[in-house]
Design a protein around this nucleic acid. Structure first.
Lengths: 164, 164
DNA sequence: GAATTTACGTCAGCCTTGTTGACTTTCCAA
DNA sequence: TTGGAAAGTCAACAAGGCTGACGTAAATTC
């Protein structure tokens, strides 16, 4: 057994173990997005629309700039997505009352319906995985993912995680 | 505490917990790809090239069709990536001796160098995350990811995980 | 009150990476 | 031996990233 001065077993840090983790991330992410992708295909929407819908649902009334921070794309790119969602009546955009430069975004009833369909599918897979692995594993899962984020993303994540 | 007939606590399966897991996947995957993306930008390559290089390194001599199975894209899409890698002398493609329709793929020395650079970066982040979370967490991480894969992907993953 | 900055929208054009369709070469089995 | 399947290539298109430039309204600063 490989032991350190501290006494812990470090076999879980071998290149081989790390490679397995890398490949697990790759294959699992495919599963993670598979169900929503399937629902969206055929509609005129894609993964980018799903992300926008998710975070608008998550933080109703959020502004465009805030969404830009979270999604990490350019405003031109986000705008294209948002425009189609607004035109199609899934998202409502309203001028800020305190700062009229801002646009506050909400899902319409129609938007809520699609959000529900997408997140039901994604949660179903997540729930099955969680149930199969058990609570202990889930805790570890979340710990490793959190440690893998860029610090700035971790801030975004934790902000969302608690408040709203 | 929410208890089932079986007696286990199921609080880890609430929609709220699942949502946190979903967002953790989203933000963590960004971190996961960030370092290789940074290295690739400026070169003429992208994430698709990285994936091809990774799995050719992983299974030297693999065929195009085998790579297609693993990557889950169309052969036309893979072909474009492969063509540039071959033209640039990172990948060597040789006609199969037993079946001349097949092309067997290998990294050249130049290809090995780039692979090394990319995987060093990705492993470094993975290692930091693993170390921060600890061996117990890593085990849970792997369990949940594996449970999240599509069955077919899980087969691919396990085939790679053990043999070569 | 004028100048600057901020938030947002938009046009144009580019790149990567996915897609389908049509095609050749090669192998194999009926 | 021939016809179908498998492996790979070429062409064209779409989604969704990107940069750069510009416009407008509102807020902030000087």
């Amino acid at each position: 057994m490989a032991e350190t001065p501290g006494g812990e077993n470090l076999l879980f840090l071998t290149d081989e173990q790390l490679r397995k983790g890398i490949e697990a991330m790759f294959f699992a992410y495919r599963g993670f997005t598979a169900d929503p992708d399937r629902i969206l295909e055929g509609m005129d929407y894609g993964r980018a629309h799903h992300r926008a819908i998710h975070f608008i649902h998550r933080s109703p009334g959020t502004t465009v700039s805030n969404l830009l921070l979270i999604l990490g794309v350019t405003k031109q790119s986000l705008n294209r997505v948002l425009r189609t969602l607004i035109e199609d009546g899934l998202v409502r955009s309203e001028k800020g009352k305190v700062d009229a430069r801002e646009r506050h975004l909400h899902l319409t009833d129609k938007g809520q319906m699609l959000e529900r369909e997408l997140s039901d599918a994604q949660r179903a897979r997540m729930r099955a995985a969680y149930r199969a692995a058990g609570p202990q594993a889930v805790q570890g899962f979340r710990q490793v993912l959190e440690a893998m984020m860029d610090p700035e993303m971790r801030r975004q994540y934790n902000r969302l995680k608690e408040g709203g």
